[in-house]
C-alpha cells in the first residue's frame, strides 16, 4: 500500500461503507436461520426435486445476503456491480454444457460397458 501512496494516488472522495451495526446483526441472524433451514433439508431426509430446489434457494439467498450486505455490494455504484456480477455469467454456459456432457458420458458407459 505504502508504495502506491508514495507515487501519489490522486485524492478521491471515498464513499465509506458505514452502516448501522443493527443491520449487520439482522443479516447475521437471517444467515443463521437460512443455514439451519438448509441443514434441516438434510435432517428431514427430503429427497428428489424438492430437496434440490430448497438447497439451491437457501444457497442463493445466503450468497446474496453475504455479497449484498456484508460485502457492501448493494451500496456500491452500478459500474462496480455490473463489472463484478456479469463476467461469471459465462460460467453458466460451462456449467450447463458440462452437465450435458457428463450425462452423455454416463449414458455411453451404461450402454457399452454394461455397468
Amino acid at each position: 500500500m505504502s508504495t502506491s501512496n508514495a507515487l501519489g494516488q490522486e485524492s478521491q472522495e471515498h464513499n465509506t461503507q458505514e452502516h448501522p451495526i443493527g443491520l449487520y446483526l439482522k443479516i447475521w441472524v437471517l444467515l443463521f436461520v437460512l443455514s439451519t433451514l438448509s441443514y434441516m433439508v438434510d435432517y428431514m431426509q427430503l429427497q428428489g426435486y424438492l430437496r434440490w430446489t430448497l438447497i439451491i434457494i437457501f444457497m442463493l439467498l445466503k450468497a446474496g445476503l453475504i455479497v449484498a450486505v456484508f460485502m457492501h455490494m448493494m451500496w456500491e455504484r452500478l459500474a462496480l456491480i455490473y463489472a463484478i456480477l456479469l463476467p461469471p455469467l459465462c460460467l453458466l454456459v460451462l456449467i450447463g454444457l458440462m452437465a450435458i456432457e457428463a450425462d452423455y458420458t454416463i449414458l455411453m458407459r451404461y450402454d457399452f460397458f454394461g455397468r
Binding site: 500500500m1 502506491s4 494516488q9 490522486e10 478521491q12 472522495e13 471515498h14 464513499n15 456500491e76 455504484r77 459500474a79 462496480l80 463489472a83 463484478i84 463476467p87 461469471p88 460460467l91 460451462l94 456449467i95
Partner: peptide
C-alpha cells in the same frame, strides 16, 4: 475520466477483481 469505479480505492478495486478471478477458480 480517471476512474471507472467512483470512490473505490485502488486496493479495494484490486481485491474485487482478484475475487472475480478466484470465483473462476472455485467454479
Amino acid at each position: 475520466d480517471q476512474d471507472a469505479f467512483k470512490g473505490v480505492s485502488w486496493g479495494k478495486a484490486m481485491m474485487w477483481i482478484f475475487l472475480l478471478s478466484d470465483t473462476f477458480i472455485f467454479s
